[in-house]
Amino acid sequence: MSELAPGALAPGTGVDALALPLVHEPLPADEVVIGRPTTAVHALATLGEVEVGVWEMTPGTASDVEVDEVFVVLSGHARIEFVEPALPAIEVDHGSVVRLAAGQRTVWTVTETLRKIYIA
């Protein structure tokens, strides 16, 4: 059996994704549009080339360039604007499932700290 990364789940174990403590860091200044949002990430597992984890962002607005990802929102609220390619903006909150594609340029406006499970 291969060695697990720090914080990763061992087979047959579980974690409360809503209660999992996360360590936040400020976003790079060139990504911040409004406010002083911070983000945190905790990788739970790597399955082949796919990573599964918990990600969180505090209120504020930030730009991003996405990777291939599907995520499920556990808590919070945000508006995601799709800048390139231009697509209609979406509102996400608990229970939302979203697919992002590598290279998409987005702007995230988080109004209530957003926590999600990602598969990327």
Score class of each variant (00 low, 15 high):
Glu3Met: 14
Asp16Gly: 06
Pro88Leu: 11
Ala40Met: 05
Pro6Leu: 02
Leu4Ile: 02
Glu69Val: 02
Pro88Cys: 10
His24Ala: 14
Phe71Ser: 05
Glu91Ile: 09
Thr39Val: 00
Val23Lys: 08
Thr39Arg: 15
Ala17Phe: 13
Ala102Ser: 14
Pro28Val: 00
Pro88Val: 13
Arg105Thr: 10
Glu69Ala: 02
Pro59Thr: 06
Met57Thr: 09
Ser2Ile: 05
Ile119Pro: 03
Thr58Phe: 10
Thr46Pro: 01
Ser75Pro: 02
Phe82Ala: 08
Glu69Tyr: 01
Ala101Tyr: 04
Val23Ile: 07
Glu51Phe: 01
Tyr118Leu: 10
Glu112Thr: 13
Ala17His: 12
Pro37Asp: 07
Ser96Lys: 14
Ala29Arg: 14
Leu20Tyr: 12
His77Phe: 07
Ile80Asp: 01
Ile80His: 01
Leu4Gln: 02
Glu31Cys: 09
Glu91Arg: 05
Gly53Trp: 05
Ser96Phe: 10
Ala101Arg: 15
Glu112Ile: 07
Phe82Val: 11
Val98Ile: 15
Thr61Asp: 01
Asp68Cys: 01
Ala102Arg: 15
Gly60Cys: 00
Val110Tyr: 08
Arg115Lys: 11
Ala43Arg: 11
Glu81Lys: 06
Leu47Asp: 00
Pro28Met: 00
Pro26Tyr: 03
Leu22Phe: 12
Leu44Ala: 06
Ala10Thr: 04
Gly14Met: 09
Gly103Lys: 14
Asp30Met: 03
Leu20Ser: 11
Ile90Lys: 10
Glu3Val: 13
Thr106Arg: 01
Trp108Leu: 02
Glu69Asp: 11
Ala62Trp: 05
Pro37His: 10
Val32Thr: 05
Glu25Trp: 01
Val97Ile: 15
Pro11Ile: 06
Gly12Thr: 08
Glu31His: 06
Phe71Arg: 11
Leu18Pro: 05
Val32Arg: 02
Gly76Ala: 12
Leu4Lys: 08
Thr109Ala: 03
Gly48Asn: 02
Gly95His: 14
Val72Phe: 01
Ala89Asn: 05
Gly95Gln: 14
Asp68Arg: 09
Leu27Trp: 06
